[in-house]
């Protein structure tokens, strides 16, 4: 039971990060139906910038509290990523707004490659170790030896919730947010109503990038590592989460992110036990084909944690095939 609880905590933490990244995908998609493939790289750049600032401050020997140093890292990463998000939109995507659908997708892949290798040039090929300056205390849940939740995990989950709430408020309660939603509904009509559509589209990129910056710092401090390739898979998974929840839908992205995090953690945690043939009747469990092997090894596992990266893709494919609008998506994506 403790283990299950621990896996749920793990899943919720990763899921919160996915959710924050997924929000960036879903906002952009909601407005211009573009999969911003380079979004994962924005997360990576955010982590790298924060890494540089934190290293510099930690090394400078200033009498700053650790919390302030990390905060400075975040505050540096956010504007850099926002600028990057704006540049991406302005230089790569805006000129293609009326091009065939596939053109921006190819551009996005191109930008993703470019950003990765620029990061390689700047920060090198080796993984960079995030300095461990914040005290990372673990709190035991249900006695010693049971599940534990660390202060970083608590911080990630709480911060994610706050960001989600803040974004929801922003999009639904402010004039700016309403203008963004109007643009998402119909660019032309919104423009007729006096909304500067270009600005709104750029705004979704910039807001998404700011969230990505925070996500980057979260991932960096959580795993203690930043690497120039870290963004790509994370981005794909977050995209899967957005699709799972219903792309274009903010609540969907959050739900999808948390669900995907849980699916991954629980899948990794339990799939090997479920697919252990030795536990199956007829095959391993007494008188089966594998009795000898089971007696020798104790287990014959078909699928283990080696398939953990498959889960996200499987979820993505299944959702798209059986429920293309996702869990909460109202809009059916049949705009050929």
């Amino acid at each position: 039971m403790d283990i299950l609880l621990q896996q749920i905590i793990n899943g919720l933490t990763t899921g919160s990060v996915y959710a924050i990244v997924a929000l960036g995908y879903t906002m952009v998609y909601g407005v211009i139906q573009l999969i911003n493939f380079a979004h994962g790289e924005v997360v990576m750049i955010g982590a790298m910038v924060a890494f540089t600032v934190i290293m510099a401050l930690a090394g400078a020997g200033l009498p700053l509290p650790p919390f302030a140093i990390v905060l400075a890292g975040v505050l540096a990463a956010i504007p850099v990523c926002m600028a990057l998000g704006y540049l991406l939109e302005r230089l790569a995507y805006r000129p293609l707004r009326h091009a065939p659908r596939l053109a921006p997708l190819i551009t996005a892949i191109g930008m993703s490659i470019v950003l990765q290798h620029l990061a390689l040039l700047i920060w090198g090929r080796d993984p960079r170790a995030f300095p461990q300056i914040m005290e990372n205390t673990s709190f035991a849940i249900g006695g010693t030896g049971g599940a534990a939740i660390s202060s970083v995990q608590i911080a990630i989950i709480l911060l994610s919730l706050a960001l989600m709430a803040g974004l929801t408020w922003f999009v639904y309660r402010t004039r700016f947010g309403i203008a963004i939603r109007a643009t998402a509904e119909d660019v032309r009509v919104a423009a007729l109503m006096g909304v500067d559509a270009d600005r709104m589209i750029a705004a979704t990129f910039v807001i998404g990038a700011a969230l990505a910056a925070v996500a980057g710092v979260m991932v960096g401090t959580y795993y203690g590592i930043a690497h120039y390739t870290m963004g790509f898979t994370l981005g794909l998974k977050a995209f899967s989460a957005a699709v799972l929840g219903g792309i274009g839908n903010l609540a969907g992205a959050m739900l999808g992110g948390l669900l995907l995090g849980l699916v991954e953690a629980l899948g990794t945690g339990y799939i090997s036990e479920i697919t252990d043939l030795c536990r199956w009747p007829l095959i391993g469990d007494g008188g089966g084909l594998l009795t000898e092997r089971c007696a020798a090894d104790g287990h014959v596992v078909l699928f283990g944690s080696n398939y953990q990266d498959v889960f996200a893709f499987l979820v993505l494919i299944l959702v798209l095939v059986f429920r293309p609008s996702g869990l909460l998506g109202e809009r059916v994506s049949e705009r050929a």
Binding site: I3, Q7, T14, E264, T268, G269, S272, S305, Q308
Partner: peptide, 8 residues
């Protein structure tokens, strides 16, 4: 992310 594997 090794947490899930390690928890198991």
């Amino acid at each position: 992310d090794w947490k899930a594997v390690l928890t198991k």
